[in-house]
């Protein structure tokens, strides 16, 4: 701070507290709603403080398998989300670190061609070309399988770029030393490059885990088998359940369960997350 202005300081804190309240309030309300029974949520205004149904609601949600959610326990949907998120994360990191290694450390025909092929996929989200991608997955017989949920989302230009950027900063002397010691390219990759990339991999892991966990449209299309539903996509079936009125205390409970894992990851690994986010986008 350059100068001392008590009023400005007060104002600054007021702005920040208002911001925090604005961001926290919606989640607070849904957390509160998820602890009430249907009675409290049938008339306006709804309560602003917790009810006593938390245990019943959540145990019913996680293990119960209610008709509103298509008969699938939310615990199972969360397990599916976890498998999908981890699959996408690990797959993306593995595939793109190898590609970046080839592009940076080797010289071969079509190297730049491959680089551009990866580059053009950069900002094209799956939503845009959803119908033909769905067709392709159908032709390959990947509907209703973990493979269909995971593999099409694995290609990632962002991760490849991040690794390429990082490899370019690794000193050349390391390669020279490795070659003098007669280490082959794969030996160099395993014993030197991979350990050096640990921080980058960890930071990327957080970003990609959130990306994978929060997938929506893709699981919606690829899975018709209820045992493969993921939680972020499953909630939509409860909201738009057609003729019945939405059961808000269950919906909000599911929303809480769906947002807690990624939020914990972000908050617990905050510094790594910030590093990963800011670097992967620049």
């Amino acid at each position: 701070m350059v100068e001392n202005r008590p009023l400005l300081k007060l104002f600054t804190h007021a702005v920040l507290i208002l911001g925090v309240l604005f961001l926290c309030f919606p989640v607070w309300m849904s957390l509160v709603a998820s602890t009430h029974g249907p009675g409290a949520l049938s008339k306006s205004p709804i309560p602003l403080w917790f009810g006593d149904q938390a245990w019943e609601n959540y145990s019913q949600l996680i293990f119960g398998g209610m008709s509103e959610a298509g008969g699938v326990p939310v615990g199972m949907m969360m397990l599916n989300s976890l498998i999908m998120a981890l699959g996408i994360t690990i797959g993306k990191i593995a595939v793109s670190i190898l590609a970046a290694y080839a592009i940076v450390y080797f010289r071969f025909p079509f190297r730049m061609g491959f680089f551009w092929m990866i580059f053009v996929t950069l900002m094209l989200p799956v939503e845009v070309r959803i119908l033909p991608t769905f067709d392709v997955v159908t032709k390959l017989g990947l509907l209703n399988s973990y493979g269909g949920l995971i593999v099409p989302l694995i290609a990632s230009a962002t991760a490849t770029f991040l690794f390429r950027q990082f490899f370019l900063t690794v000193p050349d002397e390391l390669v020279e030393a490795a070659r003098i010691d007669r280490a082959g390219p794969m030996r160099f990759f395993w014993d030197i490059l991979l350990p050096l990339s640990r921080t980058n991999i960890a930071a990327l892991f957080i970003i990609l885990f959130i990306y994978g966990w929060n997938q929506y449209l893709w699981p919606l299309l690829v899975t018709t088998d209820e045992s493969l539903y993921t939680v972020v996509m499953g909630i939509q079936r409860m909201v738009n359940s057609g003729e019945q009125l939405p059961v808000w205390h269950y919906i909000m409970g599911t929303a809480m369960l769906a947002l807690i894992p990624p939020v914990i990851v972000v908050v617990a690994m905050q510094n790594l997350f910030v590093k990963g986010l800011v670097e992967s986008e620049k």
């Binding site: 920040l16 911001g19 925090v20 961001l23 926290c24 989640v27 959130i210 966990w213 929060n214 929506y216 972020v232 996509m233 909630i235 939509q236 929303a255 769906a258 947002l259 990624p262 939020v263 990851v265 972000v266 908050v267 905050q270 997350f273 910030v274 986010l277």
Partner: peptide
Amino acid sequence: LLIWPYAVAPAL
């Protein structure tokens, strides 16, 4: 206190 909504899925 300000960064966690990043992790909330747009659908949620």
